[in-house]
Each structure stands twice: as C-alpha cells, then as structure tokens.
Amino acid sequence: MPVPSSPTSVFVFGSNLAGRHGKGAALWARHHRGAIYGRGVGPQGDAYAIPTKDRHLRVLPLPVIRSHVADFLGYARHRPDLRFEVTPIGCGLAGYRPDQIAPMFAGAPANVFLPDAFRVVLSASSGEVRHG
C-alpha cells in the first residue's frame, strides 16, 4: 500500500445538535466520510461536524455557532497532521450569509482550508487572500 503524500483530508460540515445528517453536506458526510448519525458535534470518521442548528432543527444564534467554530479551530490547531476542508457552514439550510460566518474563521491555522465565499470575505476585511 502506498504512503499518502499529503495529510488526511477531513470534511468539515454544518450539522444539527441532534446529529440528523439528512440533507446537504451533512448527508454527503454521512454517506462518504463516516459522519455518525446521532452525533452532531465534533470529529467522526473523516469528517468534523460544526452545529448550526439545535436538536429541534432550529437555527442556532451566531454566538453559539461562534463557540462551536472556536472549538473546531482549537481541535484543528492540535491536529496539524490533518487537512480540514471547510464547507460554507451555516450558509445553506441555516440561512446565514458568508459575511456573518466567515469572520468566525479569522486566524484559522494553516491546515484549515476555507471555501471561496469565506476567503473572499476574510480577504476583503484583512487585505490578503488565505489558502488561495
């Protein structure tokens, strides 16, 4: 078996606290990356769930999402061996805009790769482009 030349890729997706990975990126993560039905937060398989909705599928307030993003960024900092590919969490079924979510990822470690919509927002506010 060949040795991989790059770090393991982790699919980072928006979820709900009930762990009902039934739509969008969460469903894809369940089918293709080992996301665990019933687990709405944290690492699972080759995926990482960041909640944007509560157990009753109501949209979480931005400060609560920010707390979950901070937890994720802490995890990513402690796992430099992994490459985290973030989807535009909160901008699909939760209904937030990239300019509301992207700033939560400011200062993300180099192993966190953000979606274009987030990078555009962050580069506009800092004058630089990250992970381009």
Score class of each variant (00 low, 15 high):
residue 47 A to H: 04
residue 47 A to M: 07
residue 47 A to E: 08
residue 47 A to T: 09
residue 47 A to R: 06
residue 48 Y to P: 08
residue 48 Y to L: 05
residue 48 Y to C: 10
residue 48 Y to N: 04
residue 49 A to S: 12
residue 49 A to E: 07
residue 50 I to K: 09
residue 50 I to P: 05
residue 50 I to Q: 04
residue 50 I to N: 06
residue 50 I to T: 07
residue 50 I to V: 15
residue 50 I to R: 10
residue 51 P to E: 03
residue 51 P to F: 03
residue 51 P to C: 04
residue 52 T to A: 01
residue 52 T to N: 01
residue 52 T to H: 00
residue 53 K to Q: 15
residue 53 K to M: 15
residue 53 K to F: 03
residue 54 D to K: 12
residue 54 D to S: 11
residue 54 D to C: 07
residue 55 R to S: 14
residue 55 R to N: 07
residue 55 R to M: 09
residue 56 H to I: 00
residue 56 H to T: 01
residue 56 H to A: 02
residue 56 H to F: 00
residue 57 L to W: 13
residue 57 L to E: 13
residue 58 R to T: 00
residue 58 R to D: 00
residue 58 R to N: 00
residue 59 V to S: 08
residue 59 V to D: 02
residue 59 V to G: 01
residue 59 V to Y: 00
residue 60 L to D: 10
residue 60 L to G: 05
residue 60 L to M: 08
residue 60 L to S: 10
residue 60 L to Q: 13
residue 60 L to P: 07
residue 61 P to R: 12
residue 61 P to A: 14
residue 61 P to N: 09
residue 61 P to K: 14
residue 61 P to I: 10
residue 61 P to Y: 13
residue 62 L to H: 04
residue 62 L to F: 05
residue 62 L to Y: 02
residue 62 L to W: 02
residue 62 L to C: 02
residue 62 L to T: 02
residue 63 P to Y: 07
residue 63 P to N: 13
residue 63 P to D: 12
residue 63 P to M: 10
residue 64 V to K: 15
residue 64 V to F: 07
residue 65 I to E: 08
residue 65 I to C: 10
residue 65 I to N: 07
residue 65 I to F: 09
residue 65 I to P: 14
residue 66 R to K: 05
residue 66 R to E: 11
residue 66 R to T: 01
residue 68 H to E: 10
residue 68 H to K: 04
residue 68 H to V: 02
residue 68 H to I: 04
residue 68 H to G: 02
residue 68 H to M: 01
residue 69 V to F: 14
residue 69 V to N: 11
residue 69 V to E: 08
residue 69 V to G: 13
residue 69 V to P: 13
residue 69 V to A: 11
residue 70 A to M: 14
residue 70 A to I: 14
residue 71 D to H: 09
residue 71 D to W: 07
residue 71 D to I: 05
residue 71 D to E: 15
residue 72 F to D: 12
residue 72 F to R: 12
residue 72 F to T: 13
residue 73 L to G: 06
residue 73 L to R: 10
residue 73 L to N: 07
residue 74 G to N: 15
residue 74 G to I: 11
residue 75 Y to M: 08
residue 75 Y to I: 08
residue 75 Y to Q: 11
residue 76 A to V: 01
residue 76 A to Y: 02
residue 76 A to C: 05
residue 76 A to R: 05
residue 76 A to Q: 05
residue 76 A to I: 01
residue 77 R to T: 06
residue 77 R to I: 03
residue 77 R to K: 12
residue 77 R to C: 02
residue 77 R to F: 02
residue 78 H to L: 06
residue 78 H to Q: 11
residue 78 H to G: 10
residue 79 R to M: 07
residue 79 R to Y: 05
residue 79 R to E: 09
residue 80 P to M: 03
residue 80 P to I: 05
residue 80 P to T: 04
residue 80 P to K: 09
residue 81 D to H: 15
residue 82 L to H: 14
residue 82 L to I: 10
residue 82 L to T: 09
residue 82 L to R: 15
residue 82 L to G: 05
residue 82 L to W: 12
residue 83 R to F: 06
residue 83 R to E: 14
residue 83 R to K: 13
